[in-house]
Amino acid sequence: MPNNIRVAIAGVGSCASSLIQLVAMAKREEAGQSLSGIMHEEIGGYRVKDIDFVCAFEVDQRKVGLDLADAAFTEPNIAKKHIDIPLQNVIVTAGPLLDGIDGHLSQIIRPAEQARQVETKYVTKKLRDAQADVLVCYLPTGSYCYRRSIIDPGSPKKN
């Protein structure tokens, strides 16, 4: 049996909420039960339940400082709540704001002050400290910083 996949998330929005809920559902399922809507329940020996969230970045002040389970349902997220997510013991940290918030998002997102100070090297350190294998980037903008972070030595090499 392979080791679990240690996943970091950049952008704890509605899409991330759906993924976090799916993983929680998979971990609750009994052996032999299938997850509805999953095309391939196993890929390369890994199953959805083998995902462990280890780090999360966000720029919205309403989510920074929360456990990932709570941030997944915090406004402005609009993903449907299918289940209660158990605490993940992953505190959402401020990610870099970099190129700002443009267009309609500027009416929705409330930037955390910390996000204006965060640099790429901070992201690299957090990923390394969390021993993340994979970084899932759900950002509409600003992904350059995260791409730079994963090419630094000791950081996750998959995206």
Rank of each mutant, 00 (worst) to 15 (best):
M1R: 13
N4C: 12
N4R: 13
I5D: 04
I5C: 13
V7F: 01
A10R: 08
V12L: 04
S14H: 08
S17R: 06
S18R: 15
I20C: 05
Q21A: 06
Q21E: 15
K27E: 08
E29Q: 15
E29T: 14
E30L: 11
G32D: 05
S36G: 10
G37R: 05
M39D: 15
E41P: 01
I43D: 06
Y46I: 01
Y46S: 01
V48P: 09
D50W: 06
V54C: 09
C55P: 02
A56R: 04
A56N: 05
F57L: 06
V64N: 00
L66K: 15
L66A: 03
D70W: 09
F73G: 08
T74I: 08
P76R: 13
P76N: 11
N77M: 04
N77T: 09
I78Q: 10
K81Q: 15
L87T: 13
D99A: 10
D102P: 08
G103Q: 04
G103S: 07
H104G: 12
H104S: 14
Q107V: 00
P111F: 07
Q114S: 15
R116N: 06
Q117I: 02
V118S: 01
E119M: 10
T120H: 07
T120L: 09
V123R: 02
T124Q: 14
K125T: 14
K126A: 14
L127F: 02
Q131N: 14
Q131R: 15
D133N: 10
V134G: 02
L135T: 00
C137T: 11
Y138M: 11
P140L: 13
Y144P: 02
C145A: 15
R147Y: 12
I150L: 12
I151D: 11
G154R: 06
G154C: 07
P156G: 08
